[in-house]
Design a binder for these strands. Structure first.
Length: 960
RNA sequence: GCCGGUGUGGCGGAAUUGGCAGACGCAGCGGACUCAAAAUCCGCCGCCCUCUAAAGGCUUGCAGGUUCAAUUCCUGUCACCGGCACCA
């Protein structure tokens, strides 16, 4: 929406007959387009790789990456250019500082949104995606960003997803060796099984079946328990409306992140990633990277490491022990003596077992009713239910290994199957949830911890660390021990009897990687008649996504992948599919699931290093050059992209997935750094205005008008207040970048977004304010060019004060760019231009405010921010080569030295005088000058100062 | 509830290590130019008291503390934004 018409009072000046050379919108747009064309012709922003002609190995490298966009039909919004302008300024600056800069751009184009849009419009996603990319590219290029477009690619291109599939195969062929904490080829594990002739489990326990006697299916299923990319049966999030399963991360409050459709829990056989194997390293290595604290905290919470113990409770039938023990995870093993009952999740296998084999007290009907109700209640209901807890007694009892007491086992949905073992020991005295449950159902409550300052009075649970009480039995005695000592004692005692052990638990779960959708990367894997999976050989990649006229997902209770419709593609032979190890004519079926949207963005930053390589996903030489860097002291750090800028909405998903893939590639020797992104920065959300009624509801901007200086609803005159809100179609407050560029030019747009405030802060778009930076560019232009004649304005003589200010500006602008303080950098340049403009006598067009040399250096400062106008001025100064190939101007520190400095003098904390003292004045000299000042004498009124603090060259504070 | 972050004029914001709070921009006010308007240029512009001015007082969400000196450090507290949320 263009807001120009609504604010006519501050529209920019336009060229008139008198001033045909004025820098205004049309003028700016014309020169911007001309320079963009020229830069493209000259291939100005091409980045050379090691080994290329033109590569200069003596320069330091700087890899600066934007989160590549997901092109949508709606085109760019004002949030995109915010981060992109920031990186562009930094990259231009770094080039001028003499760095080899890698600054690429591409397209994240597979996935649900494009497919949903295609379904809505009935146009094939290949078409809608191609159009969206074309629109995005046109819009991005209009900003004059210095991307090396030679490196552009889209994740949907076979040349790209070839290697996405290849990386998936690396995971398929690898397992995590916990003993060395890294991934290794699964062939090594298989060889071990063969040589030992046994099926060995993760924890070292061997099963009865010998490898040589196991069926192929058994062998495969066993190996699948180790593969990093494996086929596993999991209870997954099935979204009937989207016709696909979703990762846990893509489900928010029981609804799909995309579209907000209900999601059901359903067991399915799916491709998974064993990301949980990397939980500890993903957590620990957060210490290596320079990332926002909030993002590290979010990742750490998502991984959710928690140390505790696993404790096994015997399930009793009458007086005897029955079946497998009921295992629980607890972080408070020291409270075992206070465990007066147990709770298991409705989905816990023990529930089904007890329904088949009821205990004497089991009310089968009641339990069945409860678990049915829990199953049918969607996750939304389950989470939105008020705090009131529900549950039923199973009729079974377990033996508390500490007290020996029989304690009842209840089933309740406040215990989640997805965390820990799906069962808990309930310690009502010291856990709020258990307490609530015990109160409601009349269960025993026993205090076993005494917490200083928190007496237990039976009205609520007391949680925290303290000293154990009421905790003594034949198993162990904890009384008097502090919480941590008691936990150690308890876990030792339990371990000695083999009924418990220390254990670490994570919230992170394995990553569900299959989607029942069309628009994604096919898996390079097929199934034979026995249901065994076989990988496609690397030489036969990519497995091309078949063209499919009808790509619609099937809305159903059972997953029906659309690729199943491509019969000729699905039903093939081992030979045709490129599967080794099977007779060539063996009939096989291709995997019809596709990879999720995240796949492409997990490694795109690596591909940019070497995007045209068709023999490797990236050459190791290019990868080593762009991804590794050293600290100032020469030591290696996490390495990776030097600066990665993008929205905080990707704090967990994309960034965690990419880190995981990167670590697998690192373990397998394909990349040389443990982390993909050394430094991460989130640009803040650009917000907009909206209006709010007294009841809190929001009103779109076009339904509001101003009456007597007050904002009211157009329809009924009811008062509304202006608030800051997200840009949204419904609020009619979305700003379209194309309109802003048409009104002011791209340079003004860039400058405005950078001048709005700190890059990381959320800030409201204010169309009214754009004029400020536009005027700055006009003044800068007028500093160099006469608006009437178009002649160059250059001062013949250099003003010493101006020269000093220029040096100071060079220093400060550089400092602010390094700190990503672009708003402050621009403010410094405005100050310089204002200072240079004021003394200028427009009546004498032959005299400018700056000398040629000063104008040149200022233009170089401006170039990263407003590349087009700077290039135009540079060209008019007579240069044949680009200002963007210049060396950043240097400042002379000696120029910044002032001979005299102004020092404030405070008496009783108030500034009473400002004195001029020589720069070199010592503290006693400064003090003497201060005390001699009449205002100071007056303020002192004859009182003798108690103390005088002098910070030489800074200030004087006289205490009385 | 827990975690992370942010509170500075009418508005967006600035302030190296604790050292002159409010740079710069918008809006507003006054002037020059103009037949007039726009644009441009010049000046003023935190709040209170005051006829005006001088002078004074107050001021970085709020209440304390440390310090010669606090937007900056510490304690408590409130508000807003973001994330997580029955995770045993």
């Amino acid at each position: 929406m263009s807001q120009k018409s609504s604010t006519p009072s501050n529209s920019p000046s336009t060229p008139s007959e008198e001033t045909p050379h004025r820098y205004a919108a049309a003028f700016a747009c014309t020169l911007e387009l001309a320079w963009q064309q020229r830069w493209e012709q000259d291939d100005l922003y091409r980045t050379h790789n090691p080994g290329d002609a033109g590569f200069d190995a003596s320069k330091p490298k700087f890899y600066c990456l934007d989160m590549f966009p997901y092109p949508s039909g709606a085109g760019l919004h004002v949030g995109h250019p915010e981060g992109y302008t920031a990186t562009d300024i930094l990259c231009r600056y770094k080039r001028m500082q003499g760095c080899n800069v890698l600054h690429p751009m591409g397209w994240d184009a597979f996935g649900l949104p494009a497919e949903q849009y295609a379904i809505q419009t009935g146009v094939h996603p290949r078409e809608t995606t191609r159009n969206a990319i074309a629109t995005f590219k046109r819009q991005l290029q209009r900003f004059g960003f210095s991307y090396d477009w030679n490196r552009e690619f889209a994740t949907i291109e076979p040349e790209y997803y070839h290697w996405t599939q290849w990386i998936w195969l690396q995971c398929y062929h690898a397992y995590y060796d916990a003993s060395v904490q890294r991934a290794r080829p699964i062939a090594e594990l298989e060889a071990k099984f063969v040589s030992q002739d046994v099926l060995m489990d993760v924890d070292g326990s061997a099963t009865q079946v010998r490898w040589s006697a196991a069926s192929p299916l058994q062998r495969q299923q066993h190996l699948d328990r180790y593969r990093l990319a494996y086929l596993g049966t999991q209870t997954v999030n099935w979204c009937p409306k989207l016709g696909t399963v979703l990762a846990n991360e893509e489900v928010i409050n029981g609804r799909s992140e995309r579209g907000g459709f209900p999601v059901m829990r359903k067991p399915l056989r799916q491709w998974m990633f064993r990301i949980t194997a990397y939980a500890d390293r993903l957590l620990e290595d957060l210490a290596l990277v320079q990332w926002p604290e909030s993002t590290r905290a979010m990742q750490s919470e998502w991984i959710g490491r928690s140390e505790g113990a696993e404790i096994r409770f015997d399930v009793l039938r009458g007086a005897s022990v029955e079946g497998d023990a009921l295992s629980v995870f607890t972080t408070r093993s020291d409270t075992l003596f206070g465990a007066t009952f147990m709770v298991i999740a409705p989905e816990h296998p023990l529930v089904a077992h007890m329904l088949e084999h009821p205990h004497a007290e089991t009310d089968v009907a009641a339990v069945r009713l409860y678990i049915e109700a829990a199953k049918n209640r969607s996750d939304i209901d389950r989470q939105s239910t008020s705090k009131k807890k529900t549950g039923v007694f199973t009729g079974a009892y377990a033996r508390n290994p500490a007290t020996g007491a029989s304690i009842p086992i209840w089933v309740a949905d406040y215990v989640l199957m997805g965390y820990g073992t799906g069962a808990i020991m309930a310690v009502p005295a010291h856990d709020e949830r258990d307490f609530e449950f015990a109160k409601d159902f009349g269960l025993a409550i026993v205090q076993v911890v005494e917490i200083a300052g928190l007496p237990f009075d039976g009205t609520h649970a007391v949680s925290g660390e303290g000293v154990a009480i009421n905790s003594a039995s034949a198993l162990c005695t904890l009384n008097g021990l502090t919480t941590s000592a008691a936990q150690d004692a308890m876990t030792c005692a339990l371990a000695a009897r083999k009924v418990g052990a220390k254990r670490v638990q994570y919230k992170l779960r394995d990553w569900l990687f299959s989607r029942q959708r069309y628009w994604g990367e096919p898996f390079p894997v097929v199934f034979d008649a026995d249901g065994l999976h076989h990988p496609v050989g690397e030489a036969h990649l990519p497995v091309l996504l078949p063209a499919l006229a009808d790509f619609h997902p099937v809305e159903s209770d059972q997953p029906v992948p659309p690729l199943g419709k491509a019969r000729a593609w699905v039903e093939t032979t081992a030979h045709a599919a490129g599967v080794a190890g099977l007779p060539p004519e063996t009939a096989v079926r291709r995997e019809t699931n596709t990879m999720p949207n995240w796949a492409g963005s997990c490694w795109y930053y690596l591909r940019y290093c070497d995007p045209k390589n068709n023999t490797r996903f990236v050459s190791s030489e290019a990868e080593r050059y762009w991804m590794t860097s050293r600290r100032a002291d020469g030591s290696m750090h996490s390495g990776g992209v030097d600066l990665y800028i993008g929205g905080a909405e990707h704090a967990v998903l994309h960034l965690l997935y990419a880190r995981f893939w990167h670590k697998v590639l690192f373990d397998l020797g394909h990349v040389s750094t443990p982390e993909p992104f050394g430094r991460l920065f989130h640009q803040g959300l650009i917000q907009s205005h909206a209006y709010q009624r007294p009841d809190g509801s929001l009103v779109a901007v076009d339904l509001v008008c101003e009456v007597d200086g007050k904002t009211v609803e157009r329809e009924n005159g009811a008062p509304v207040t202006q608030i800051i809100a997200k840009m949204s179609k419904t609020l009619k407050n979305v700003v379209n970048p194309d309109d802003v560029i048409a009104d002011y030019g791209a340079d003004t747009f860039r400058l405005y977004e950078m001048y709005m405030g700190p890059l990381e802060a959320a800030k409201p778009w204010n169309t009214r304010d754009i004029i400020g930076v536009h005027r700055f560019l006009q003044r800068a232009w007028r500093l160099a060019i006469d608006e009437k004649s178009g002649a160059l304005l250059v001062a013949a003589t250099e003003d010493a004060a101006m020269e000093r200010l220029l040096h100071r500006t060079i220093e400060r602008v550089g400092e602010h760019i390094e700190r990503l303080g672009f708003n402050s950098a621009i403010a410094c340049m405005i100050e310089l231009v204002n200072a240079a403009t004021r003394p200028m006598d427009l009546a004498d067009p032959t005299q400018g405010g700056l000398t040629r040399s000063q104008l040149e250096r200022f233009t170089q400062l401006l170039a990263p921010f407003a590349p087009h106008i700077a290039e135009e001025i540079w060209s008019r100064l007579g240069h044949a080569t680009s200002v963007h190939s210049c060396v950043w101007p240097v400042f002379d520190a000696a120029m910044l030295e002032e001979h005299e400095v102004e020092v404030p003098v405070q008496v009783r904390g108030k500034v009473r005088a400002r004195i001029m003292v020589p720069k070199t004045a010592t503290a006693p000299e400064t003090e003497a000058i201060a005390l001699a000042h009449p205002s100071v004498c007056e303020a002192l009124a004859g009182v003798t100062p108690k103390k005088i603090i002098v910070v030489a060259g800074r200030m004087v504070n006289i205490v009385v």
